[in-house]
């Protein structure tokens, strides 16, 4: 499962991951392999990535949007702290 986290300033993260948890507008949710296609706006909060080796990485984002489509995830964040 590939993920890209991009802000208008730079590409924060790109790579293969096992799962990702994002702060959706209706509450935080996790995306695993073969998740149904979804487009959701995001609130301020943490994006938690678990990479293929089980390593956790956390990014604090300020709002944005996520698109999941056929195991390709794009997170567009306004900004990342």
């Amino acid at each position: 499962m590939k993920v890209e986290i991009i802000t208008p300033d730079h590409r924060v993260f790109e790579g293969d991951i096992k799962s990702i948890r994002v702060p959706g507008r209706k509450g935080s949710f996790q995306v695993l392999k073969d998740h149904a296609p979804i487009i959701s706006t995001l609130e301020n909060g943490p994006v938690i990535i678990v990479d293929t080796e089980g390593q956790e990485t956390v990014f604090e984002i300020n709002g944005g949007v996520i698109e999941v489509k056929m195991n390709r995830i794009i997170v567009l964040a306004e900004s990342v702290n």
Partner: peptide
């Protein structure tokens, strides 16, 4: 090529909100 079969997205919070915002 994928254009032929657009994904059936789940919209959160709602489709209208997404359109309005995105």
């Amino acid at each position: 090529s994928e254009a032929a079969m657009p994904a059936d997205y789940i919209y959160e919070p709602t489709r209208e909100d997404i359109i309005e915002e995105l």
